[in-house]
C-alpha cells in the first residue's frame, strides 16, 4: 500500500513537470538580424518581408511593447506664439511667352500650394476613401482629401525658381489672442 502511494505521488509530480514544460512557449523561429525573406503566395504575388534589427525580438511578445518615445507637440500657449513654416511648390505652364511670365505664374501656383499646406497644418484635412473590389480584385481605389480654411497674415519668406520649379517658403505666426473668445 505504501509503495503504491509513493508511486502515485511520483507519477503526479512527473505529470506536473510535463505540463509546466508545455505551458512555457518556446520561440522556435527567431528571425535573423536584418534578413529579408521572400514569401511566395499562390497567385504569383510575392511579398518581401524585412525583419528589423531588434534585440528585444527574442523577448515575449507581451514584454516587447516598449513605451512610445515622447514627441514634442506644437501647442499654442498664451505666452509663446507659434510659428508655422511651409514650402509650396509650383510649376509654370507649358505655353508661356517669356521666362518672366513663367516665373510669375509658377510663383502664383507655389503660393497657392503654400496656403494649402498652412491650411492643412492649422485646420486639418478631411479624408475620404473608397475601394471597389470585384471578383476578389481591387478594381478602383480612390482617396479624396479636402481642406477648407480662411488664412490671414501669412508672409512669404523666400522664393526660389530653378529648372521651372518655383518654391515659396511661407510663414504664419499664430498667437493665442487670435483664437481667444
Amino acid at each position: 500500500m505504501k509503495y503504491s502511494l509513493i508511486l502515485i505521488s511520483l507519477l503526479y509530480m512527473t505529470a506536473c513537470a510535463a505540463q509546466e514544460k508545455k505551458a512555457v512557449p518556446e520561440i522556435t523561429h527567431i528571425p535573423p538580424v536584418n534578413k529579408a525573406e521572400t514569401i511566395a503566395v499562390p497567385n504569383n504575388t510575392t511579398i518581401n518581408v524585412t525583419y528589423k534589427d531588434d534585440k528585444k525580438s527574442k523577448m515575449c511578445p507581451a514584454k516587447m511593447q516598449h513605451p512610445m518615445p515622447k514627441q514634442k507637440k506644437d501647442v499654442l500657449s498664451i505666452h509663446e506664439p507659434l510659428i508655422i513654416s511651409v514650402v509650396g511648390q509650383g510649376v509654370a505652364p507649358v505655353n508661356t511667352t517669356s521666362p518672366a511670365q513663367a516665373y510669375a505664374l509658377a510663383k502664383r501656383a507655389a503660393t497657392a500650394d503654400a496656403y494649402r499646406l498652412i491650411a492643412e497644418k492649422v485646420k486639418g484635412v478631411k479624408v475620404d476613401g473608397q475601394d471597389l473590389i470585384k471578383n476578389m480584385m481591387v478594381k478602383r481605389s480612390t482617396v479624396r482629401t479636402s481642406v477648407q480654411a480662411m488664412v490671414r497674415n501669412a508672409n512669404i519668406v523666400e522664393t526660389t525658381f530653378k529648372d521651372g520649379l518655383c518654391e515659396v517658403e511661407m510663414e504664419i505666426t499664430l498667437s493665442h489672442s487670435d483664437f481667444a473668445q
Partner: peptide, 18 residues
C-alpha cells in the same frame, strides 16, 4: 501681394484614383 495679406479663403481638393 497686398491682397494676399488680407484674409483669403482656401478650398483644396485632392483625388487619388489608382
Amino acid at each position: 501681394d497686398y491682397i494676399h495679406r488680407l484674409s483669403l479663403d482656401i478650398r483644396s481638393k485632392d483625388t487619388t484614383t489608382n
